[in-house]
Design a protein around this nucleic acid. Structure first.
Lengths: 336, 336
DNA sequence: CTGAAAGCGCTTACAG
DNA sequence: CTGAAAGCGCTTACAG
């Protein structure tokens, strides 16, 4: 371990001031080109490491964007994250990631940490139970907030997500068009906005088709493969025999298809299954999953852009966007 | 947005010094209990936010641990991460995560960022092409390094991973014991240490059984579901007809099983498939995957503990561990 | 084009 | 038990 190299080390080394070194390293035209080159060369040679803590303390800008998500192991969020990453990279900002798994305490702790590090802004897919006041607290401390995937009632922050009710309605209608009458809806927590809206879309489609919804066919849960697997097994074990299943998301659908196989039913043949999101795996599963694209790439890109714009002072122009879902038909659904 | 509340705001407010406030907020017994209480109450009331940049600048400790991984969407790494998270939480440290996707440049950039923020240490699953010198550069800047999942030749840093050669040998032997003779090996990059060791384990088992390895049955690749899916389809399309497939990891195996189905072959019946890692999904896929447990929970826990120990000055006692793989038999393999 | 000086918000000897 | 003062490593007016 070596002694720390700072601006003054370089300044002394070359007989200039730290102000000059600081400006030169940021390539300011205030410093003569020759001096700049000399300083940069010296910095590289000495192995100088820029101290962001000091700089951030002085400027009160940190270049940090906090990103909070439910579950990065869910490809839907991973794909949003990729898009954010691509977008922020161009702006030379870095992001701190928190996987809160719908735990409000984890979310709160992380936000406190962001505040302590002087983060510039936060993009958040809010944990269950997040209130408009929670978001106001962040904004009150000077950080712009942007919501993705879930909206919060009463919050006046830009929000980027899909039109969930419409999306699930399309999926349900697709099964109805194929002749299905006993259609289950599996996954999603009813106390989230997405859970409610998707449930709504399902019920609306059934009602429009004159099918009476059966509460025993509606099973809420978290949204992992395991939840789908267990729910569908429980459903059939309870004596129900739906021929179509609308799933809250693709992960649930993949779990449901595995669960169906485990009880001797072939998905796409014996039971039709729809997903939601269109994660990349949907295409390569067998049977390939009929699903609804949930605009994850667009959501990530729009959120990151809106954040950068806001930080550059153009936040007034940022508007919430509800992306149109797109239907993707594959092999997991068929005529009854 | 309010004016910033600092130690001096509180100090002025109560007519004490900032030194006293600083000590009181960290609950130092140097400050009278009554004073402490008063200060804490005032801090809470004013909405004081501790400035870690300033503190870290002063103490040159940041409480940040960097964690670098190939791919957090791979549950193997996600499960390691969970274990690290649990362990670090207890020590009041936070971690910064980087998903480098085997891109050396992404890794380098992130490490530079860590250095700039004055991180205390780094736990890394190194990107392809990382050298012992790269790690030395980090240590040279005062950060202890701990490796997980992959080791680096010539590096003298603590490493926590499984015994890969042995693990794959067990899987291959299992297929041999079931009577398979045409056994493929799919996935993994041969230029990584894990890729080489697992390939080695496969070849060793075949050789011991007197089976001549066929190069056309060995397909290296990245390690996603999609890679498994495409590889197995290409393999059968090329005219080969293995009855058993040893996969580099579980994700590959899941992709392979989907790929088999897509060409009309039933995994576990027509073709036996083994995985590696034992991620949670292995158990709920249909057929449930026969695989090798790769100690991910243990790896994460050991790495985080070793890091905390090192930072507390007990690093001399930290030794590398190669965890024993465990065979888990399920339904994706059967007698030929 | 370059330098001297102040200050961001902490913590830590040191003095009393 | 409490306070005054220095200093961590930057950046930014300001002066020349």
């Amino acid at each position: 371990m070596k002694a720390k190299i700072t601006l003054s080390t370089i300044a002394e080394h070359l007989g200039v001031s730290t102000a000059t070194v600081s400006l030169a390293l940021r390539d300011s035209s205030l410093v003569a080109k020759a001096t700049r080159e000399k300083i940069k060369a010296s910095a590289a040679e000495l192995g100088y490491i820029y101290d962001r803590r000091a700089a951030s303390l002085r400027t009160s800008r940190s270049g940090i964007i906090g990103v909070l998500m439910h579950d990065i192991t869910n490809p839907f969020y991973a794909e949003i994250l990729l898009a954010i990453e691509d977008e922020l990279e161009a702006s030379r900002r870095i992001f701190l990631l928190c996987n809160h798994r719908d735990n409000l305490k984890t979310q709160t702790n992380f936000i406190d940490t962001l505040l302590q590090f002087g983060a510039d802004g936060v993009i958040v897919s809010p944990a269950l139970g997040t209130t408009a006041q929670d978001l106001e607290k962040i904004e009150h401390n000077g950080l712009p907030v942007i919501l993705i995937a879930r909206s919060i009632e009463g919050a006046s922050v830009p929000t980027f997500r899909g039109n969930d009710k419409q999306g699930i309605q399309i999926a349900t209608q697709h099964l109805i068009d194929l002749g299905h009458k006993e259609i289950a809806f599996i996954g999603g927590l009813r106390d989230t906005i997405t859970g409610r809206e998707r449930s709504d879309g399902y019920l609306t489609a059934l009602n429009q088709a004159g099918i009476k919804p059966d509460p025993a066919l509606q099973m809420g849960s978290q949204s992992t493969r395991l939840d789908g697997y267990e729910s569908v097994r429980a459903l059939f074990a309870s004596g129900k025999n739906p021929t179509g299943i609308v799933c809250f998301n693709d992960l649930i659908a993949l779990g449901v298809m595995s669960g169906l196989r485990s009880i001797g039913k072939e998905p796409g043949v014996d039971v039709s299954v729809t997903g939601y999101d269109n994660i990349s795996e949907a295409e390569i599963f067998s049977p390939a999953l009929t699903t609804i694209w949930n605009a994850q790439q667009e959501i990530g890109k729009a959120a990151a852009r809106a954040m950068v714009e806001t930080l550059q002072g153009g936040g007034a122009g940022v508007k919430s966007i509800y992306f149109e879902p797109k239907f993707v038909e594959r092999n997991s659904t068929s005529q009854i």
